[in-house]
Structures are given as C-alpha cells and as structure tokens.
C-alpha cells in the first residue's frame, strides 16, 4: 500500500516540535518525529480528523517540554557534573526571570569555585604570585591575585593556608551550586507534572 499523503499541517506541527527539541541529539529527535508521524498517520487513516489527532497530542511546545523534562532533566537530576546541571537549567529556564536568575547564580558559583580551586593549585606552582591580599591599614578589602603579588600597601592573608582554603572553598561551592541546580530542576519537574 502507498504511504498516506502527508498534510502540510502535520509537517508544520513536526517542524515546530523539532525546533523546540534543540539541545537533544539529532538521532533522538529523528526517532521522536518518526514515532509521532506514525501515530498521526495511523490515527488519521483509521478515520479520526487530523485536527482532532493533533489536538489530542497537545501543542508541539508542550510535547517538546515533556520530552525535555522527562529526558534531559531526569539525567541532570542525578548528575554530578556542572555541565550537565547547567544544561538542565538552560533547558528549563523557559523564559522565566526566576529560571534565568537560578541559571546565572549557579554559573557564577561554579565560576568562583573554578577560580578558587585553580588558585589553590597555582599557589603550589608559583607561591609568590598567588594569594588573598588585604590592606595593611584602612578597610579590609581582600583581593585575590593569581598572576603576581598584590598592590603596594597590602599583605598576603593566608600564606600556604591558601591551598587547603582554596580546595575547600572550591568543593563547598561546587556542592552548593549542585544542590541549588538539583533543587531547581526537581521543583520545575514537579511543576510540569502538575500541569
């Protein structure tokens, strides 16, 4: 038997879905579209009007959001890697200010963790260039350097303690950012399940 003729409305629906599945591997996206195309074709062939079939599926944005939440965030929820967590947050932000804020905050904490961890390692390699410097007189305003001693009038605060401090700060910050990311992802999942 011939393949049924594809209505342009189906193509438009699938294209809208494809564009909202970005970030997922192309092979996975192709498989999703192939499966849904089969679903639509078979229901239309068994006599249900196309409009009704597409309506029963839900609009492509919601279907794509379901896929994104089910798959990518399920992985991110148990992920330990900052990249996987940031990716999950990227997909979940959905234009909301709170989503962007959590994403920005998490990225910032990861960046600081990276800087402090890096400084701890660098301290071992060039001890004179790395440190947290505080003013000798006046207000205490610590600044971190990794490429040379601090400005005149400042002294190094931590000495070799910079190494364990940097390491510990790095681990604590990664842990905190992971917790924040996981919390937001779980919250978004619960919300989308409540829809």
């Amino acid at each position: 038997m011939d393949r049924p003729t594809i209505d342009p409305a189906v193509e438009r629906y699938l294209e809208r879905l494809r564009s909202r599945l970005r970030g997922m591997p192309a092979s996975e996206v192709d498989e999703i579209l192939r499966e849904l195309r089969g679903h639509v074709e078979e229901r239309v062939q068994s006599g249900t009007p196309l409009r009704e079939v597409l309506q029963a599926l839900g609009d492509p944005e919601s279907v794509a959001a379901e896929y994104q939440t089910e798959r990518v965030t399920a992985r991110a929820e148990c992920a330990r890697s900052p990249l996987a967590i940031l990716h999950g947050l990227m997909l979940l932000r959905r234009g909301s200010l709170a989503g962007w804020t959590v994403l920005g905050l998490t990225a910032l904490v990861y960046a600081w963790a990276f800087v402090l961890g890096g400084a701890a390692v660098e301290k071992l390699l060039s001890p004179r260039d790395v440190g947290i410097w505080v003013n000798e007189s006046g207000p205490l305003w610590p600044r971190l350097t990794v490429d040379g001693p601090g400005p005149a009038g400042t002294r190094e605060a931590l000495g070799w303690w910079m190494v364990p401090f940097g390491m510990l700060a790095c681990l604590t910050m990664v842990y905190a950012a992971n917790q924040l990311g996981h919390w937001w992802i779980r919250r978004s999942r619960r919300r989308s399940e409540g829809r």
């Binding site: 999703i32 679903h39 029963a56 839900g58 919601s62 379901e66 896929y67």
Partner: peptide, 8 residues
Amino acid sequence: SEGTVYPL
C-alpha cells in the same frame, strides 16, 4: 493528553 505518553 496523548502527548504525555510518548515522552514517558
């Protein structure tokens, strides 16, 4: 909604 079954 049928669209929830396939992602699941």
